[in-house]
């Protein structure tokens, strides 16, 4: 009977861990996508100071989230986002607007893919 209780505790623990993991991924990806989108829109309007500010914010926020996300996500998925976000401030600083916007778009896609890959959907399960 003790083992059945242990299994019930494991079940609750697993459900909690999975829910926390999914919610954290959702929250972080939504927040990151929003920051990168704001930076991209600012660059499109020619407001490079705001774009630089938001691209730096995106890099710094991602670094903070990375430590947490890498405890339950495959590291290669996170590394590709690391690489994309890390070039944004420099591209913005040197005025490479076209490339900056393209990199922003790539970053947003990667972040959204990261979110989608963690959702317990039929497509992901199968």
């Amino acid at each position: 009977m003790k083992r059945v209780w242990a299994s019930a505790i494991i079940f609750v623990f697993l459900v909690v861990i999975c829910v926390i993991g999914t919610n954290t991924t959702k929250k972080v990806s939504a927040q990151m996508a929003q920051t990168v989108t704001t930076a991209k829109e600012a660059a499109a309007k020619g407001d490079m100071d705001t774009a630089l500010k938001f691209s730096r914010k995106a890099s710094s926020d991602w670094r903070d989230s990375h430590e947490y996300l890498c405890t339950f996500m495959p590291h290669n998925q996170l590394e590709s986002i690391d690489q994309t976000l890390s070039v944004l401030p420099m591209l913005c600083y040197y005025g490479a607007t076209d490339q900056f916007e393209a990199e922003c778009e790539r970053g947003i896609t990667q972040i959204m893919y990261l979110n989608e890959s963690q959702l317990p959907s039929i497509a992901n399960i199968l």
Partner: peptide, 18 residues
Amino acid sequence: DTGQPLASGFIPIAVLVM
């Protein structure tokens, strides 16, 4: 594979034990 989080091993093991 150090690129895989430890949770990717722990969680399936816990599910199997359960």
